[in-house]
Design a protein around this nucleic acid. Sequence first.
DNA 1: CCTGACCTTCACGTGAACGTCAAGGTTGTG
DNA 2: CACAACCTTGACGTTCACGTGAAGGTCAGG
Lengths: 166, 166
Amino acid sequence: MNDTSGRRLLRINEVAAETGLTTRTIRYYEEMGLLEPAARSEGDYRLYDESDLERLQFIRGLRDDAGFSLAQIRQLLEDEAVRERNRERFRTTGDPDERRALILDARERVDRQIELLEAKAARLAAMIEEARARGRHLDGHLAELDGGPAPHPGRLAGATPAGTGE
Amino acid sequence: MNDTSGRRLLRINEVAAETGLTTRTIRYYEEMGLLEPAARSEGDYRLYDESDLERLQFIRGLRDDAGFSLAQIRQLLEDEAVRERNRERFRTTGDPDERRALILDARERVDRQIELLEAKAARLAAMIEEARARGRHLDGHLAELDGGPAPHPGRLAGATPAGTGE
DNA sequence: CCTGACCTTCACGTGAACGTCAAGGTTGTG
DNA sequence: CACAACCTTGACGTTCACGTGAAGGTCAGG
Protein backbone atom coordinates (compact mmCIF):
# COMPACT_ATOMS: atom_id res chain seq x y z
CA MET A 1 0.00 0.00 0.00
CA ASN A 2 1.29 3.42 -0.88
CA ASP A 3 -1.31 5.79 0.38
CA THR A 4 -3.38 6.50 3.42
CA SER A 5 -6.34 6.13 1.09
CA GLY A 6 -6.64 3.02 -1.06
CA ARG A 7 -5.29 4.58 -4.27
CA ARG A 8 -2.54 2.65 -6.02
CA LEU A 9 0.23 5.05 -6.91
CA LEU A 10 2.55 4.12 -9.74
CA ARG A 11 6.19 4.94 -10.25
CA ILE A 12 7.35 6.45 -13.47
CA ASN A 13 8.51 3.21 -15.05
CA GLU A 14 5.11 1.56 -14.57
CA VAL A 15 3.42 4.61 -16.00
CA ALA A 16 5.74 4.43 -19.00
CA ALA A 17 4.83 0.80 -19.55
CA GLU A 18 1.10 1.51 -19.40
CA THR A 19 1.14 4.60 -21.59
CA GLY A 20 3.72 3.52 -24.14
CA LEU A 21 5.74 6.64 -23.44
CA THR A 22 9.30 6.69 -22.16
CA THR A 23 10.25 7.90 -18.71
CA ARG A 24 12.21 10.69 -20.33
CA THR A 25 9.15 11.79 -22.27
CA ILE A 26 7.01 11.81 -19.13
CA ARG A 27 9.55 13.91 -17.26
CA TYR A 28 9.84 16.18 -20.26
CA TYR A 29 6.09 16.71 -20.34
CA GLU A 30 6.24 17.65 -16.69
CA GLU A 31 9.05 20.06 -17.45
CA MET A 32 6.87 21.58 -20.19
CA GLY A 33 4.02 22.07 -17.74
CA LEU A 34 1.69 19.42 -19.14
CA LEU A 35 1.24 17.54 -15.89
CA GLU A 36 2.38 17.15 -12.32
CA PRO A 37 2.68 13.77 -10.60
CA ALA A 38 -0.06 13.27 -8.01
CA ALA A 39 2.57 12.92 -5.29
CA ARG A 40 6.21 12.38 -4.45
CA SER A 41 7.59 9.62 -2.23
CA GLU A 42 9.73 10.26 0.84
CA GLY A 43 12.82 10.00 -1.34
CA ASP A 44 11.32 12.25 -4.02
CA TYR A 45 10.19 9.54 -6.43
CA ARG A 46 7.41 10.68 -8.73
CA LEU A 47 4.11 8.93 -7.91
CA TYR A 48 1.21 8.91 -10.37
CA ASP A 49 -2.45 8.11 -9.89
CA GLU A 50 -5.14 6.97 -12.28
CA SER A 51 -6.04 10.45 -13.48
CA ASP A 52 -2.41 11.08 -14.37
CA LEU A 53 -2.55 7.97 -16.52
CA GLU A 54 -5.62 9.25 -18.34
CA ARG A 55 -4.06 12.63 -18.80
CA LEU A 56 -0.99 11.11 -20.37
CA GLN A 57 -3.08 8.95 -22.66
CA PHE A 58 -4.99 12.03 -23.69
CA ILE A 59 -1.78 13.90 -24.37
CA ARG A 60 -0.53 11.00 -26.42
CA GLY A 61 -3.70 11.01 -28.45
CA LEU A 62 -3.42 14.70 -29.16
CA ARG A 63 0.19 14.27 -30.16
CA ASP A 64 -0.04 11.11 -32.29
CA ASP A 65 -3.56 11.17 -33.65
CA ALA A 66 -4.21 14.86 -34.02
CA GLY A 67 -0.60 15.87 -34.56
CA PHE A 68 -0.67 18.76 -32.14
CA SER A 69 2.51 20.33 -30.85
CA LEU A 70 3.19 20.22 -27.14
CA ALA A 71 2.60 23.96 -27.04
CA GLN A 72 -0.87 23.52 -28.52
CA ILE A 73 -1.56 20.63 -26.18
CA ARG A 74 -0.58 22.72 -23.20
CA GLN A 75 -2.97 25.39 -24.43
CA LEU A 76 -5.79 22.87 -24.68
CA LEU A 77 -5.05 21.49 -21.24
CA GLU A 78 -4.91 24.97 -19.76
CA ASP A 79 -8.27 25.71 -21.31
CA GLU A 80 -9.47 22.54 -19.68
CA ALA A 81 -8.07 23.69 -16.34
CA VAL A 82 -9.82 27.04 -16.63
CA ARG A 83 -13.04 25.19 -17.31
CA GLU A 84 -12.44 23.12 -14.21
CA ARG A 85 -11.97 26.19 -12.07
CA ASN A 86 -15.03 27.78 -13.58
CA ARG A 87 -16.98 24.64 -12.73
CA GLU A 88 -16.02 25.07 -9.12
CA ARG A 89 -17.00 28.72 -9.24
CA PHE A 90 -20.23 27.63 -10.90
CA ARG A 91 -21.10 25.38 -8.01
CA THR A 92 -20.38 27.98 -5.38
CA THR A 93 -22.16 30.93 -6.94
CA GLY A 94 -25.87 31.46 -6.80
CA ASP A 95 -25.99 34.28 -9.32
CA PRO A 96 -27.73 33.01 -12.46
CA ASP A 97 -26.07 35.64 -14.63
CA GLU A 98 -22.63 34.56 -13.54
CA ARG A 99 -23.60 30.93 -14.01
CA ARG A 100 -24.69 31.67 -17.54
CA ALA A 101 -21.49 33.52 -18.25
CA LEU A 102 -19.38 30.66 -16.95
CA ILE A 103 -21.17 28.09 -19.08
CA LEU A 104 -20.97 30.27 -22.15
CA ASP A 105 -17.26 30.69 -21.59
CA ALA A 106 -16.84 26.94 -21.33
CA ARG A 107 -18.86 26.48 -24.48
CA GLU A 108 -16.64 28.85 -26.36
CA ARG A 109 -13.56 26.97 -25.29
CA VAL A 110 -14.92 23.64 -26.36
CA ASP A 111 -16.22 25.12 -29.57
CA ARG A 112 -12.71 26.15 -30.40
CA GLN A 113 -11.37 22.71 -29.53
CA ILE A 114 -13.95 20.96 -31.66
CA GLU A 115 -13.41 23.35 -34.52
CA LEU A 116 -9.71 22.59 -34.47
CA LEU A 117 -10.28 18.86 -34.40
CA GLU A 118 -12.98 18.90 -37.03
CA ALA A 119 -10.91 20.92 -39.47
CA LYS A 120 -8.28 18.22 -39.24
CA ALA A 121 -10.86 15.47 -39.50
CA ALA A 122 -12.48 17.01 -42.55
CA ARG A 123 -9.22 17.25 -44.43
CA LEU A 124 -8.40 13.69 -43.48
CA ALA A 125 -11.80 12.51 -44.65
CA ALA A 126 -11.31 14.21 -47.98
CA MET A 127 -7.97 12.51 -48.45
CA ILE A 128 -9.46 9.15 -47.50
CA GLU A 129 -12.29 9.56 -49.98
CA GLU A 130 -9.77 10.41 -52.69
CA ALA A 131 -7.83 7.26 -51.93
CA ARG A 132 -11.01 5.18 -51.84
CA ALA A 133 -12.04 6.50 -55.23
CA ARG A 134 -8.73 5.37 -56.65
CA GLY A 135 -9.27 1.97 -55.01
CA ARG A 136 -12.73 1.59 -56.55
CA HIS A 137 -11.32 2.49 -59.92
CA LEU A 138 -8.70 -0.23 -59.57
CA ASP A 139 -11.34 -2.72 -58.55
CA GLY A 140 -13.19 -1.95 -61.74
CA HIS A 141 -10.13 -2.84 -63.77
CA LEU A 142 -9.58 -5.99 -61.79
CA ALA A 143 -13.13 -7.07 -62.48
CA GLU A 144 -12.59 -6.37 -66.14
CA LEU A 145 -9.54 -8.61 -66.20
CA ASP A 146 -11.15 -11.36 -64.17
CA GLY A 147 -14.42 -11.41 -65.99
CA GLY A 148 -13.19 -10.72 -69.50
CA PRO A 149 -13.03 -7.35 -71.26
CA ALA A 150 -16.45 -6.07 -70.34
CA PRO A 151 -17.03 -2.50 -71.58
CA HIS A 152 -18.71 -1.40 -68.40
CA PRO A 153 -17.91 -2.42 -64.83
CA GLY A 154 -20.44 -4.84 -63.41
CA ARG A 155 -19.82 -3.65 -59.88
CA LEU A 156 -20.71 -0.34 -58.40
CA ALA A 157 -17.66 1.65 -59.34
CA GLY A 158 -16.85 5.30 -59.67
CA ALA A 159 -19.13 7.47 -61.77
CA THR A 160 -16.99 7.94 -64.88
CA PRO A 161 -14.69 5.02 -65.72
CA ALA A 162 -12.32 6.99 -67.92
CA GLY A 163 -12.71 10.28 -66.14
CA THR A 164 -9.71 10.26 -63.84
CA GLY A 165 -7.33 9.52 -66.65
CA GLU A 166 -5.91 6.29 -65.43
CA MET B 1 6.31 33.91 -72.13
CA ASN B 2 8.62 31.45 -70.47
CA ASP B 3 8.05 28.28 -72.33
CA THR B 4 7.84 26.99 -75.87
CA SER B 5 4.35 25.94 -74.91
CA GLY B 6 2.02 28.48 -73.38
CA ARG B 7 2.52 27.43 -69.74
CA ARG B 8 3.28 30.19 -67.26
CA LEU B 9 6.25 29.16 -65.17
CA LEU B 10 6.68 30.70 -61.74
CA ARG B 11 9.83 31.52 -59.84
CA ILE B 12 10.26 30.33 -56.32
CA ASN B 13 9.20 33.58 -54.69
CA GLU B 14 5.87 33.63 -56.53
CA VAL B 15 5.30 30.01 -55.60
CA ALA B 16 6.00 30.87 -52.00
CA ALA B 17 3.45 33.67 -52.12
CA GLU B 18 0.76 31.41 -53.59
CA THR B 19 1.34 28.44 -51.31
CA GLY B 20 2.02 30.27 -48.08
CA LEU B 21 5.32 28.46 -47.72
CA THR B 22 8.73 30.11 -47.55
CA THR B 23 11.32 29.78 -50.28
CA ARG B 24 13.55 27.98 -47.85
CA THR B 25 10.82 25.46 -47.12
CA ILE B 26 10.25 24.82 -50.82
CA ARG B 27 13.95 24.26 -51.41
CA TYR B 28 14.07 22.04 -48.34
CA TYR B 29 11.20 19.91 -49.66
CA GLU B 30 13.10 19.53 -52.88
CA GLU B 31 16.19 18.55 -50.93
CA MET B 32 14.09 15.94 -49.12
CA GLY B 33 12.90 14.52 -52.42
CA LEU B 34 9.29 15.71 -52.18
CA LEU B 35 9.30 17.53 -55.52
CA GLU B 36 11.37 18.74 -58.42
CA PRO B 37 10.73 22.05 -60.17
CA ALA B 38 9.23 21.58 -63.62
CA ALA B 39 12.23 23.32 -65.17
CA ARG B 40 15.29 25.48 -64.61
CA SER B 41 16.02 28.76 -66.35
CA GLU B 42 19.19 29.40 -68.33
CA GLY B 43 20.80 30.76 -65.19
CA ASP B 44 19.58 27.82 -63.09
CA TYR B 45 16.56 29.52 -61.52
CA ARG B 46 13.91 27.07 -60.35
CA LEU B 47 10.75 27.28 -62.48
CA TYR B 48 7.47 25.78 -61.31
CA ASP B 49 4.30 24.93 -63.19
CA GLU B 50 0.70 24.53 -62.09
CA SER B 51 1.09 20.89 -61.05
CA ASP B 52 3.99 21.84 -58.82
CA LEU B 53 1.69 24.31 -57.13
CA GLU B 54 -0.91 21.63 -56.53
CA ARG B 55 1.71 19.23 -55.26
CA LEU B 56 2.96 21.78 -52.75
CA GLN B 57 -0.58 22.51 -51.60
CA PHE B 58 -1.11 18.79 -51.17
CA ILE B 59 2.09 18.48 -49.16
CA ARG B 60 1.02 21.37 -47.00
CA GLY B 61 -2.29 19.67 -46.35
CA LEU B 62 -0.63 16.45 -45.32
CA ARG B 63 1.72 18.35 -43.05
CA ASP B 64 -0.75 20.76 -41.44
CA ASP B 65 -4.03 18.89 -41.54
CA ALA B 66 -2.98 15.31 -41.18
CA GLY B 67 0.16 16.01 -39.19
CA PHE B 68 2.35 13.69 -41.20
CA SER B 69 6.12 13.92 -41.04
CA LEU B 70 7.99 14.77 -44.21
CA ALA B 71 9.28 11.20 -44.28
CA GLN B 72 5.73 9.86 -44.28
CA ILE B 73 4.70 12.37 -46.90
CA ARG B 74 7.58 11.33 -49.10
CA GLN B 75 6.47 7.72 -48.72
CA LEU B 76 2.95 8.61 -49.76
CA LEU B 77 4.15 10.60 -52.74
CA GLU B 78 6.53 7.86 -53.79
CA ASP B 79 3.73 5.35 -53.66
CA GLU B 80 1.78 7.71 -55.85
CA ALA B 81 4.70 7.96 -58.27
CA VAL B 82 5.07 4.19 -58.48
CA ARG B 83 1.38 3.92 -59.22
CA GLU B 84 1.83 6.49 -61.97
CA ARG B 85 4.65 4.54 -63.56
CA ASN B 86 2.72 1.32 -63.28
CA ARG B 87 -0.17 2.99 -65.01
CA GLU B 88 2.07 3.80 -67.94
CA ARG B 89 3.37 0.25 -68.01
CA PHE B 90 -0.20 -0.94 -67.82
CA ARG B 91 -1.11 0.97 -70.94
CA THR B 92 1.84 -0.32 -72.94
CA THR B 93 1.67 -3.99 -72.02
CA GLY B 94 -0.72 -6.48 -73.52
CA ASP B 95 -0.01 -9.29 -71.10
CA PRO B 96 -3.08 -9.83 -68.91
CA ASP B 97 -1.02 -11.44 -66.14
CA GLU B 98 1.24 -8.44 -65.90
CA ARG B 99 -1.75 -6.14 -65.99
CA ARG B 100 -3.29 -8.03 -63.12
CA ALA B 101 -0.07 -7.85 -61.13
CA LEU B 102 0.23 -4.11 -61.70
CA ILE B 103 -3.29 -3.47 -60.54
CA LEU B 104 -2.89 -5.66 -57.49
CA ASP B 105 0.26 -3.81 -56.57
CA ALA B 106 -1.52 -0.50 -56.96
CA ARG B 107 -4.36 -1.75 -54.80
CA GLU B 108 -1.97 -2.75 -52.06
CA ARG B 109 -0.47 0.70 -52.04
CA VAL B 110 -3.82 2.37 -51.93
CA ASP B 111 -4.94 0.05 -49.17
CA ARG B 112 -1.91 0.94 -47.10
CA GLN B 113 -2.60 4.64 -47.60
CA ILE B 114 -6.22 4.24 -46.61
CA GLU B 115 -5.27 2.21 -43.56
CA LEU B 116 -2.88 4.91 -42.41
CA LEU B 117 -5.37 7.69 -42.93
CA GLU B 118 -8.27 5.81 -41.40
CA ALA B 119 -6.37 4.95 -38.26
CA LYS B 120 -5.72 8.62 -37.73
CA ALA B 121 -9.28 9.58 -38.61
CA ALA B 122 -10.78 7.02 -36.27
CA ARG B 123 -8.82 8.22 -33.28
CA LEU B 124 -9.53 11.81 -34.17
CA ALA B 125 -13.23 11.01 -34.39
CA ALA B 126 -13.10 9.44 -30.95
CA MET B 127 -11.58 12.58 -29.51
CA ILE B 128 -14.18 14.72 -31.21
CA GLU B 129 -16.97 12.56 -29.85
CA GLU B 130 -15.51 12.88 -26.38
CA ALA B 131 -15.50 16.64 -26.67
CA ARG B 132 -19.03 16.65 -28.04
CA ALA B 133 -20.25 14.53 -25.16
CA ARG B 134 -18.87 17.07 -22.72
CA GLY B 135 -20.54 19.74 -24.81
CA ARG B 136 -23.94 18.09 -24.68
CA HIS B 137 -23.69 17.90 -20.94
CA LEU B 138 -22.97 21.61 -20.87
CA ASP B 139 -25.86 22.39 -23.17
CA GLY B 140 -28.08 20.66 -20.66
CA HIS B 141 -26.95 23.09 -17.99
CA LEU B 142 -27.58 26.01 -20.30
CA ALA B 143 -31.09 24.80 -20.99
CA GLU B 144 -31.67 24.51 -17.27
CA LEU B 145 -30.68 28.10 -16.77
CA ASP B 146 -32.65 29.38 -19.73
CA GLY B 147 -35.81 27.45 -19.12
CA GLY B 148 -35.74 26.98 -15.40
CA PRO B 149 -34.57 23.78 -13.69
CA ALA B 150 -35.98 21.31 -16.19
CA PRO B 151 -34.62 17.81 -15.68
CA HIS B 152 -34.83 16.72 -19.33
CA PRO B 153 -32.68 18.01 -22.21
CA GLY B 154 -35.16 20.04 -24.18
CA ARG B 155 -32.95 21.93 -26.57
CA LEU B 156 -31.75 20.91 -29.97
CA ALA B 157 -28.05 21.56 -30.33
CA GLY B 158 -28.38 23.05 -33.81
CA ALA B 159 -25.75 22.87 -36.51
CA THR B 160 -22.89 23.57 -34.16
CA PRO B 161 -22.52 20.73 -31.71
CA ALA B 162 -20.39 22.53 -29.22
CA GLY B 163 -20.13 22.46 -25.58
CA THR B 164 -17.71 21.22 -23.10
CA GLY B 165 -17.26 19.24 -20.07
CA GLU B 166 -19.53 20.51 -17.48
C1' DC C 1 25.85 48.20 -69.71
C1' DC C 2 24.31 49.30 -65.01
C1' DT C 3 21.67 48.52 -61.25
C1' DG C 4 18.46 46.62 -57.95
C1' DA C 5 15.71 42.82 -57.13
C1' DC C 6 15.72 38.14 -57.33
C1' DC C 7 18.08 33.91 -57.55
C1' DT C 8 21.91 30.16 -56.60
C1' DT C 9 24.53 27.02 -53.40
C1' DC C 10 26.85 26.25 -49.14
C1' DA C 11 26.83 26.33 -44.31
C1' DC C 12 25.92 27.26 -39.77
C1' DG C 13 22.00 28.40 -36.25
C1' DT C 14 17.59 27.30 -33.87
C1' DG C 15 13.56 25.38 -31.39
C1' DA C 16 10.93 21.32 -30.51
C1' DA C 17 10.94 16.84 -28.71
C1' DC C 18 13.06 13.93 -27.01
C1' DG C 19 17.67 10.19 -26.29
C1' DT C 20 21.52 9.14 -23.56
C1' DC C 21 24.98 8.95 -20.38
C1' DA C 22 26.82 10.39 -15.63
C1' DA C 23 26.87 10.62 -10.70
C1' DG C 24 24.52 9.80 -7.05
C1' DG C 25 20.19 8.79 -3.86
C1' DT C 26 15.98 5.44 -2.67
C1' DT C 27 13.38 1.01 -2.15
C1' DG C 28 12.41 -3.32 -0.85
C1' DT C 29 13.68 -8.03 -0.65
C1' DG C 30 16.82 -11.75 1.09
C1' DC D 1 22.28 -4.52 6.17
C1' DA D 2 23.63 -5.63 1.62
C1' DC D 3 22.48 -5.06 -2.84
C1' DA D 4 20.12 -4.99 -7.26
C1' DA D 5 16.73 -2.44 -9.31
C1' DC D 6 14.74 1.66 -9.61
C1' DC D 7 14.78 6.59 -9.04
C1' DT D 8 16.70 11.65 -8.99
C1' DT D 9 18.70 15.83 -11.28
C1' DG D 10 21.78 17.71 -14.55
C1' DA D 11 23.71 18.16 -18.94
C1' DC D 12 25.07 17.20 -23.37
C1' DG D 13 23.67 14.81 -28.02
C1' DT D 14 20.36 14.05 -31.91
C1' DT D 15 16.77 14.45 -35.49
C1' DC D 16 13.45 17.15 -37.79
C1' DA D 17 12.06 21.14 -40.07
C1' DC D 18 13.23 24.73 -41.19
C1' DG D 19 15.67 30.15 -40.38
C1' DT D 20 19.41 33.05 -41.46
C1' DG D 21 23.24 34.91 -43.34
C1' DA D 22 27.32 34.86 -46.78
C1' DA D 23 29.24 35.11 -51.30
C1' DG D 24 28.22 35.36 -55.60
C1' DG D 25 25.37 34.75 -60.22
C1' DT D 26 20.95 36.15 -63.08
C1' DC D 27 17.14 38.99 -64.89
C1' DA D 28 14.56 42.98 -66.40
C1' DG D 29 14.17 47.89 -66.78
C1' DG D 30 16.24 52.33 -67.85
